[in-house]
Design a protein around this nucleic acid. Structure first.
Lengths: 205, 205
DNA sequence: GTCTATATTGAGATAGAC
DNA sequence: GTCTATCTCAATATAGAC
């Protein structure tokens, strides 16, 4: 323990990470555009100008948060692809399940930044770049769904594009209600999502 | 045909409905807060002040749109309850299915206003009132899920609260990608949603 | 129903001291 | 790393003519 158990160093005042966390929470509560630097300053107990010591612009805060969320999601895909490299004959449905479980874990683990990501509209360059990365992720998942259906693991009576969208619609909606420390833990949640997605809600006969 | 086949009357200029439709589309594209009256005026080909002839304030546009979406959703619940009054011994799962199908239809039918509703954060009184009505709707659906599970129609190994949230997360996500006139029609979409929700994605064995 | 001003507020951001 | 001013611009909304 070379420093302290705290994540901050230096002593008084904030570091960039601490400002980021407070800001992202506020962005998620009010929406990015509706959150003024004034409100941020209030929440931090700082003046507005102090924030500019940590970030050159409001949008830089957004950019850092979005990058964190996107990197985490992209890592889930990368991990699933390594799984394929290790076992070339494993069914695509295994990789798909790994991606879904991984995505739920990222949602829970990086809840604030992923929540922010899912609400981006594309009004600025920063937002459009984030949307492009998100679409690439979505496309990769969609082709996993196609693979799984083609090998016979998933039902073929519904268009795979719709399946992928409904699937991720369900998963992404978790950010609307899941709160860490609540009654549901991440592993149970991932199990429930997989169960509902694969087997549905009807009573197993 | 007493007037014209057009929905507008009066002749030149806009009526409130036409302004509303253009505004809601812009709100959904940029987000409500990020949409200025100036952009609205540009899209309408009007001056900013002309808009104030139709709505006293920007937020009044939002309020009218949210009310439209909420009324349509509440009518779905009311219709399902009348179904119960007519056939008191019908299973709750029938009413639940009616509500889900009805909700998908409302989403498709009133796509712009429902999209707007689903993105409201609660920053103002207007938004908070809308959120309260939406939560009442969600609670009603959640208790339908409980009823359906208690009568044995739905699996009981997952908490009904989570089931209801995942279910509506999937349905609500439709607004993120569904576009009228596209390859998928509303009835097919409702069928697909019900099929995925009830029976899951796995290949039926 | 629409226009051209204009009033007024609040936003993001900067300067420069401590 | 934070502060007190202050700049600048864009936003909502109003006044009053056509």
């Amino acid at each position: 323990m070379s420093e302290t158990t705290d994540t901050r160093r230096g002593r008084p005042g904030y570091d960039q990470r601490a400002v980021l966390d407070v800001a992202v929470d506020a962005f998620n509560e009010y929406g990015y555009d509706a959150t003024s630097m004034g409100v941020l300053a209030e929440r931090l107990g700082l003046s507005k100008s102090a924030i500019y010591h940590h970030f050159a612009a409001k949008e830089d805060i957004l950019e850092l948060a979005l990058d964190e969320a996107l990197t985490a999601l992209e890592n889930v895909l990368a991990a699933a692809n390594e799984l394929e490299a290790g076992q070339p004959d494993a069914p695509a449905s295994d990789r798909l399940a790994a991606v879904l479980r991984g995505a739920v874990n990222v949602l829970v683990d990086k809840l604030p930044s992923v929540t922010l990501l899912l609400r981006v509209r594309g009004n600025t360059d920063v937002e459009r770049r984030a949307l492009a990365r998100r679409r690439a992720f979505d496309r990769a998942v969609a082709s996993l769904v196609v693979e799984a259906r083609d090998e016979g693991s998933l039902r073929s009576d519904i268009e795979p594009g719709i399946v992928a969208r409904l699937l991720f619609g369900m998963i992404n909606s978790i950010v609307e209600w899941y709160r860490p420390g609540g009654p549901v833990d991440a592993a149970t949640l991932a199990d429930d999502v997989l169960a509902v997605a694969l087997d549905g809600l009807r009573t197993p006969k």
